[in-house]
């Protein structure tokens, strides 16, 4: 098992948010990763799940210091199953990836609105997985399923 290193703010555990709908094929990859994280790292993090609506995300990460978000992408710009990591505080987010690949008023908008209202977590890491299948009721694509270990590694580091 990978060791976890972080510096909690006033004893606060980092928050991991999984975005997605487990009934929507690859959109459920974050929830699958979250289940594994909850089993193996229960004491090290706090865990939340949502479907990515922006104001809900903002509510979840408001006043938090350290937040990691797992979400599926459908940018068409990366191989299916590849994991991309973004840190909005340190880099400008490639809007074209999110505006066409996020939920209608979702993660990208939550980050932008939080920036505008000065309530973005100091440490925010997005762990995004290029996905391909969002059909109702389907399981994960093989490439996406294989990426779960990598997702976990990038989320907890």
């Amino acid at each position: 098992m990978i060791s976890v290193q972080h510096s909690p703010h006033l004893g606060e555990k980092p928050l991991i948010i999984a975005i997605g709908n487990p009934w929507r094929g690859d959109d459920g990859v974050a929830v699958k990763a979250l289940e594994s994280l909850q089993q193996n790292y229960a004491g090290a993090f706090e865990f939340k799940h949502c479907q990515g609506e922006a104001t809900t995300l903002m509510e979840l990460w408001k006043h938090r210091e350290d937040v990691r978000v797992i979400d599926a992408l459908s940018s068409g710009q990366f191989p299916v199953g590849s994991v991309q990591v973004f840190e909005p505080i340190k880099q400008t987010l490639p809007a074209e990836l999110f505006t066409i690949s996020s939920h209608g008023f979702g993660l990208f908008e939550a980050i932008q609105l939080s920036e505008a209202l000065d309530c973005l977590p100091k440490n925010l890491r997005l762990v995004c997985i290029e996905a391909s299948n969002f059909a109702v009721g389907q399981g994960l694509s093989p490439e996406v399923k294989q990426a779960i270990d990598k997702i976990i590694e990038e989320t907890i580091r």
Partner: peptide, 11 residues
Amino acid sequence: CISCSAHFLKL
């Protein structure tokens, strides 16, 4: 309300 349908269509 279409949050329950698929996402990711392009303009």
